[in-house]
């Protein structure tokens, strides 16, 4: 039985998150899907940022800031700087909204104009940070 307990610990303990817990600034329970046109890309550490103009339901254009993986991780997982996405491209994103309600989100998954989907942040079940000390 003891090794079964150990296996449970082993299964539950995931590899540690990156620069910080995304759960600090972003709310995993407030997901958002947006489609817009890219206005700026900051391919920089410790997080890449994409800025996108999105029309709201009234037709007003809102500029969103989107934060995700650092460039090194993106480049190892299928992204190419200045190729995969460029200013002027249309992009659809799935993410978590900022806790302060501003037009700022943690970009988890991107869908390119071609329909290709790529992660831009950790997949479901990760990135929020642990809740209890074991």
């Amino acid at each position: 039985m003891r090794w079964l307990t150990a296996l449970a610990v082993l299964t539950c303990t995931t590899t540690l998150a990156a620069h910080h817990s995304f759960g600090v600034a972003f709310d995993a329970t407030k997901t958002v899907t947006l489609t817009g046109v890219i206005t700026k890309i900051e391919w920089m550490n410790p997080h890449t940022h994409v800025y996108m103009d999105v029309k709201d339901t009234s037709g007003k254009v809102v500029s969103w800031a989107l934060e995700g993986y650092p460039p090194n991780v993106l480049e190892r997982t299928g992204w190419k700087k200045d190729v995969t996405i460029k200013v002027g491209d249309t992009l659809t994103i799935f993410g978590w909204r900022a806790r302060d309600g501003s037009p700022f989100a943690h970009l988890r998954e991107a869908t390119l104009a071609s329909g290709q989907k790529l992660f831009f942040g950790p997949p479901a079940g990760t990135g929020e940070g642990p809740a209890t000390v074991r």
Binding site: A25, M44, N45, P46, P70, R99
Partner: peptide
């Protein structure tokens, strides 16, 4: 690949605002 963490670190300002 080079990882210059302080290059564009917005987190402290975001956290302070929060």
């Amino acid at each position: 690949r080079e990882y210059s963490c302080a290059e564009n670190n917005m987190d402290p300002a975001v956290y302070e605002k929060m």
